[in-house]
């Protein structure tokens, strides 16, 4: 039994301690917005915030989040998060959309730590998130728009 805060609400998981958080979120707690891509921490589709830090849920045992704050795309409500979601729409970012929860979570952590990142800082922060549809140009543009320093390209 692991107890933690999920999107601001206390929850508990009955899954074995070594169960990756991703499956606890998706299948036990029924929050499907966090996605499964690679299972080896290399695509970023499963990115959530753990005490505010972007973290790959596919390789994180649920026991590791005991007593901590987990935020998923469903609970992304910070100013940066809201600005990013709006920019994702205004820049028409998603193609298939499957990577985008993870992209948004990584971008939100970036803007929360660095409200006005340079182009290089954006690329460095986002480079670990694979977009198989290769919507990279719009992802980058939308992060800039959300940071208040970009003109859109869509």
């Amino acid at each position: 039994m692991t107890e933690f805060m999920l999107n601001g609400t206390p929850v508990s998981s009955a899954s074995p301690d070594d169960t990756p958080l991703l499956w606890v979120l998706r299948d036990e707690l029924d929050l499907k917005g966090t996605k499964f891509g690679c299972g080896i921490a290399q695509c970023g589709a499963c990115t959530v915030h753990l005490d505010g830090t972007p973290t790959r849920a596919c390789v994180l045992p649920v026991s590791a989040v005991a007593g901590r704050q987990v935020t998923t795309i469903e609970g992304l409500a910070s100013d940066a998060g809201e600005a990013l979601k709006a920019a994702w729409v205004s820049e028409q970012v998603p193609q298939c959309g499957y990577c985008q929860s993870g992209q948004l979570m990584t971008a939100a952590a970036l803007l929360e730590a660095n409200p006005s990142p340079s182009d290089d800082e954006i690329v460095n922060a986002m480079n670990g998130n694979l977009c198989r549809c290769m919507a990279y140009g719009r992802i980058k543009a939308a992060v800039k728009v959300a940071a208040g320093r970009g003109e859109g390209q869509a």
């Binding site: 029924d30 499907k32 917005g33 959309g97 985008q100 948004l104």
Partner: peptide, 23 residues
């Protein structure tokens, strides 16, 4: 004329439902 795609808002909020999400 350019248009806001109807599928994009849900995909920008983690709300689109993929096959893997079906239960």
């Amino acid at each position: 004329k350019s248009v806001a795609a109807l599928d994009i808002p849900a995909k920008s909020a983690g709300e689109a439902v993929y096959g893997l999400d079906a239960t």
